[in-house]
Design a protein around this nucleic acid. Structure first.
Length: 275
DNA sequence: GCGACAG
DNA sequence: ATCTTGTCGC
């Protein structure tokens, strides 16, 4: 066990986020937000390759990606990043970031409490100025329903921002008997089509998401799960359509922008100190 | 009881 | 999350 909990003043009080009581509050919050969760298609736009059924809406054009990146030198510094891509060209048409110092620790199953606030802030900023590129759909670096309580970061963010979201995991969050090994076996057994995917069904029979080989030259899948207002089949389709490489472009791009931002920040600090 | 556990 | 080194291929 970690014994670095000091029962004194403010600075180490962040460790109290680990306390069972705080975690119970977090679970309550998740349960409350879950009340508003929609796991079916609920949007006005339509997919380009799909026949326009919904009335009024145009095609999907602006797809957002969000991520929070950190620095090895100073783990308390975090960089929340938001990018928006043109869905057809997959070019970045908007990007913004925010550097903050995070005091909430990462606790498995509670990623949203660490990362959602800063990402929401970036979305709000964009919405408040009625930016024309405000995303119609958000891809999140983290899971949605594929979560111990069926409410991961992608769901959390989707409900709070009232945006359709898709969760993209680069590693499997072990839930309901799902293991890397089982997933690999299923993927290999199911066929070697590169764009093939398998549905992630747990021991309980519940469907948590999908694992997809997004590229021909990798056996390591990505894990797609429903965030908010998007069904699993739609989520898989969209993920597939945005994969130039293993990681869908909105996620890949947002991570690159985040890393560059952190790097430039430290260059700036360095110049400030030595020039 | 112990280990495993998105980012 | 973040780091590491080498390696393959265009």
């Amino acid at each position: 066990m970690k014994r670095d909990t000091f029962d004194d003043d403010g600075k180490e009080a962040s460790e109290s986020s680990w306390s069972p009581e705080i975690q119970n509050n977090w679970i309550e919050t998740q349960d409350l937000l879950k009340t508003s969760l929609v796991t079916e298609d609920d949007f006005t736009w339509h997919l380009p390759t799909t026949t326009a059924i919904g009335g009024g809406g145009g095609g999907l054009k602006y797809v957002g990606g969000v991520d929070v990146s950190f620095s090895k030198d100073d783990p308390s510094i975090a960089c929340g990043t938001l990018v928006v891509l043109d869905f057809h060209t997959l070019d970045v048409v908007y990007h913004d970031y925010s550097l903050v110092s995070l005091h909430i620790p990462y606790v498995t199953g509670f990623l949203a409490f660490r990362e959602a606030p800063i990402l929401l802030e970036l979305l709000e900023k964009m919405k408040n100025c009625a930016h024309p590129f405000y995303p119609q759909l958000l891809m999140v670096d983290g899971n949605g329903l594929l979560h111990p309580r069926g409410f991961g970061l992608a769901c959390h963010l989707g409900v709070q921002a009232n945006l359709p979201t898709i969760g993209i995991g680069k590693n499997l969050h072990h839930v309901d008997g799902l293991t890397q090994y089982r997933v690999r076996q299923l993927l290999e057994a199911k066929g070697n089509f590169p764009e093939d995917f398998i549905t992630l069904t747990g021991d309980s029979g519940r469907v948590w998401g999908a694992a997809m080989r997004s590229t021909v030259d990798t056996f390591k899948p990505i894990f797609i799960s429903v965030g908010h207002r998007v069904s699993l089949p739609t989520a898989v389709k969209i993920a597939k359509m945005t994969c130039k490489f293993r990681i869908p472009e909105p996620i890949r791009q947002v991570r690159m922008f985040g890393n560059v931002s952190v790097f430039l920040f430290f260059v700036f600090v360095y110049l400030l100190c030595f020039v």
